[in-house]
Design a protein around this nucleic acid. Structure first.
Lengths: 194, 194
DNA sequence: ACCTGAACACCGTTCAAGT
DNA sequence: ACCTGAACACCGTTCAAGT
């Protein structure tokens, strides 16, 4: 096999390289996950260094900071969406919706660093952010549908409306006494939906 | 009069210096206001340069970026709070509340750059941010009180709850079609308050 | 193919030196 | 008292050179 620069490379060697690259990539993700949860503003240079990898390697795998954060985000979000279906299977729709919101708040508070790292500079309206949120939006839609079915939630509001109304969670201090404030927020929003 | 370094300076000269400093300060604020509205991430070096002033001078007047933004913010916020009282004087409480929210949305969208510049790194929970918001919080409280008086709003929710529920405004794209989304958000929140 | 790290243009912040 | 701007340690990003 001929590499891009015309050097002869054995197929075995190519596989080794691929495997190594995959390991580098997942190692970078792991290190970045820890670093970004602690400090969402951590520098890419610091992440590369802490992963024991050249800065160029980080850029090779993740061309932009958003690419890196998005990759971390995706797994978390999928899990969160899955929780909605689990709750719907176990509980009455009204209870499931409320419990899911509580879980959502826990998630936001736990991952505050990661989430805020997704902000492009300042605001969070980017293609990637919306893409990352799509499974969550769909999950909420299922929760709302179940509640509409039993007349617990009126029609006319969408999952995105609910998400917008709970965006304030990101501005609560994870180190502070956020639980009562989150509870009141949910009380307010759920009352609006009924 | 003796200056800090023991040099003799006439009182007249001191006044001149004070006046000059005040002019420098307000000129910096003016330039920074324009620059930050356009790009909330604009560098302090760029602001100083664009004001035709040494970077040290900017730091002398505003020791931190937050100090600079806060100063700009304060005037805007006061105006917004004043609008609540004006609306309460003209309109029925329900109408006043709704109209104020519309004005608030316009404000957030117009000043998105400035507002997001207030985020300390990533989140917005800082002493200064809360201080800056206090007049807005108080204004909403007056709107809510008027509405409670005519039975239009239930007790149990505070102005801060309403603010938290409308934080999502900051994540709408000022360049996009945000009006219908803001309107639905207000519909949802106001329904919850009733 | 994949990785490295020096190099570049920037940033925030400080502080000795000027008036 | 007030202002300047060089200097410092950093940042994101690129890209020639190594394996």
């Amino acid at each position: 096999m001929v590499s891009a620069k015309g050097l002869w490379v054995s197929n075995e060697r190519v596989e080794q390289l691929h495997a190594q690259a995959a390991r580098t990539r997942s190692h970078l993700l792991e290190v970045a996950g820890v670093a970004l949860s602690t400090d969402s503003a951590v520098s890419l240079n610091a992440i590369a260094k802490s992963a024991g990898v050249g800065i160029g390697t980080l850029y090779r795998h993740f061309p932009t900071r958003e690419d890196l954060v998005f990759e971390l985000y995706r797994g978390e979000v999928r899990e969160l969406a899955g929780a909605a279906d689990a709750l719907l299977g176990e509980l009455a729709p009204g209870e499931a919706l409320r419990r899911w919101l509580d879980r959502y708040a826990d998630y936001v508070m736990a991952k505050a660093g990661l989430v805020s790292a997704l902000r492009t500079g300042t605001t969070v309206h980017g293609r990637l952010a919306q893409q990352a949120y799509a499974p969550v939006s769909a999950a909420i839609e299922r929760l709302l549908a179940a509640n509409r079915g039993i007349g617990g939630v009126r029609t006319g509001f969408t999952a995105d409306d609910l998400l917008l109304a709970t965006d304030g969670l990101y501005n609560l201090d994870p180190a502070g006494d956020w639980r009562p404030r989150a509870a009141r927020l949910f009380d307010l929003v759920l009352a609006g939906l009924r």
